[in-house]
């Protein structure tokens, strides 16, 4: 079981606030959509939830199976897809997934990597260098990277960008499957995605105040 709570999150860069006092909770089986205009801090908020950057104030708490996660424990339970996360261009798709599985310490990974490449429809290119992939193919590989360890919480930052219709279908299927396993937090500006996935909607307005 997964439960996410963030309280009074504020982030400033060089004294300039990005957002202030953002709060929310998310329970298992739900998808929270974070929306707002460009520069409202959607990506920054997701990075804070993933533990990649620290908030200026406020806190994020994630509970898995009645255990509050501490520090890097969080990495074992969440998957993150973001335009700011890149995989290794000099490795093939399969090598990328196997590397991240090994470095995570997953005991059995080869079959899992094969299944994920098939799921994101990249099996045909599993031995091609990632550097030769189109932006959409790289996005699909990022989905596989995020799902490698079967995370309870999936964070998706603008996941529909650069995807074709088939890719968007894959995204919908992924979000629905993830809701059965845990929860999803997704950021988007696309109103159709807000309507489609948003069990809960968090709007970051230009003044930087989050409201559910």
């Amino acid at each position: 079981m997964v439960f996410v709570e963030f309280k009074d999150l504020t982030k400033s860069y060089n004294g300039q606030p990005i957002f202030k006092k953002v709060r929310g909770t998310l329970e298992e089986g739900n998808c929270m959509v974070i929306t707002g205009p460009n520069g409202s801090g959607k990506t920054t908020l997701l990075k804070i939830l993933a533990g990649l950057i620290r908030p200026s104030s406020g806190e994020v708490r994630i509970k898995v199976n009645d255990h509050w996660l501490k520090g890097e424990e969080r990495n074992d339970y969440l998957g993150f897809v973001s335009p700011d996360i890149f995989l290794y261009d000099e490795l093939t798709a399969s090598e990328n997934l196997c590397f991240f599985a090994k470095v995570r310490g997953l005991p059995v990974y080869e079959e899992k990597c094969r299944q994920l490449l098939e799921k994101v429809q990249l099996k045909r290119w599993s031995n091609s260098l990632t550097g030769t992939f189109s932006t959409g193919m790289k996005q699909r590989l990022k989905f596989a990277f995020a799902l490698l360890h079967d995370p309870y919480l999936l964070l998706l930052d603008e996941p529909g960008s650069n995807l074709d219709d088939e890719g968007r279908g894959l995204l919908g299927e992924m979000v629905n499957q993830q809701k059965k396993r845990g929860a999803v937090i997704l950021s988007t500006n696309d109103s159709s995605e807000v309507a489609l996935y948003g069990d809960q909607v968090l709007r970051l307005d230009p003044e930087g105040w989050g409201s559910s």
Binding site: L91, F99, K102, V103, R104, G105, L106, P107, H149, D150
Partner: peptide, 19 residues
């Protein structure tokens, strides 16, 4: 979630191999 082993040497080896 998948159970994971925590062998530091294997993880360092994976990073080394990738580099």
């Amino acid at each position: 979630m998948v159970t994971r082993s925590s062998g530091w040497i294997l993880k360092v080896g994976a990073l080394l191999n990738k580099d």
